[in-house]
């Protein structure tokens, strides 16, 4: 299976289950909408926590979708075929991650302005929010893929993934929020975005290696 083949196959599968992506976006918006009930409807306070709320709920939404990333392929044996194919497993994993991001990260970026508006976040920061999420959400998919691969065949795999993955999400969360905060405060956003990009590049190297090793273990 070629790289593009895997992406298009996964995308076709995802499109067939459009409701899944829609559910994740719905979860994203719904969870964010809970916060005003927790902290009160005061507009300034909501605007102050908006970047954090958007990022934290985005992390949780990505988590929701991770368990199924490899599960179907693992259970029907496609994973073993992928491991046997001449395409390196690392590349296959990247294709799966890209498909995952296109069906999870991208919809979240599209939905994020809605939450920003609900939370009275000044709209000048929207381009920064979108850029930060564009750089940050692929990292979430990449790290998440390692967690998903490691827990294949585990008892209680679904509960295990957040425990493994959330601590590793913290740097992305920190720089994602600080980029938007900087934009809101009128500070330069470039360093924050560059750091997000650096984390993305590191994940782009580490996660295919670790993820492919985990997938091979699952196949043994």
């Amino acid at each position: 299976m070629r790289f593009t083949g895997i992406i298009s196959r996964d995308l076709r599968l995802a499109l067939r289950q459009r409701s899944d992506a829609a559910m994740i976006v719905l979860f994203f918006v719904l969870t964010a909408a809970l916060f005003p009930f927790g902290v009160g409807p005061e507009a300034n306070q909501l605007a102050a926590i908006a970047p954090g709320v958007i990022w934290v709920t985005a992390l949780l939404s990505v988590l929701l979708s991770l368990e199924r990333l490899f599960l179907a392929d693992y259970e029907d044996g496609s994973l073993e075929l992928m491991a046997l194919s001449p395409v390196p497993l690392e590349l296959t994993l990247l294709a799966k991650v890209l498909a995952h991001w296109l069906t999870t990260g991208l919809p979240l970026i599209v939905a994020a302005p809605l939450i920003a508006v609900l939370f009275n976040m000044p709209l000048e920061a929207l381009p920064t929010l979108a850029t930060a999420m564009l750089l940050g959400t692929p990292t979430l998919s990449l790290i998440g893929a390692v967690g998903a691969a490691l827990t294949l065949g585990a008892r209680r795999g679904g509960i295990l993934i957040p425990l493994l993955v959330l601590p590793l999400y913290i740097p992305t969360l920190i720089f994602g929020v600080s980029a938007v905060d900087a934009a809101l405060g009128g500070f330069p956003v470039r360093p924050h975005l560059l750091l997000l990009m650096a984390i993305l590049l590191i994940s782009l190297v580490v996660s295919p290696l670790a993820g492919a090793a985990a997938l091979r273990q699952a196949n043994e």
């Binding site: 590191i202 580490v206 670790a210």
Partner: peptide, 12 residues
């Protein structure tokens, strides 16, 4: 699996 996780964690 724990070994892979430990190495990823260590990089992080």
């Amino acid at each position: 699996a724990a070994a892979v996780l430990a190495l990823v964690g260590f990089v992080n």
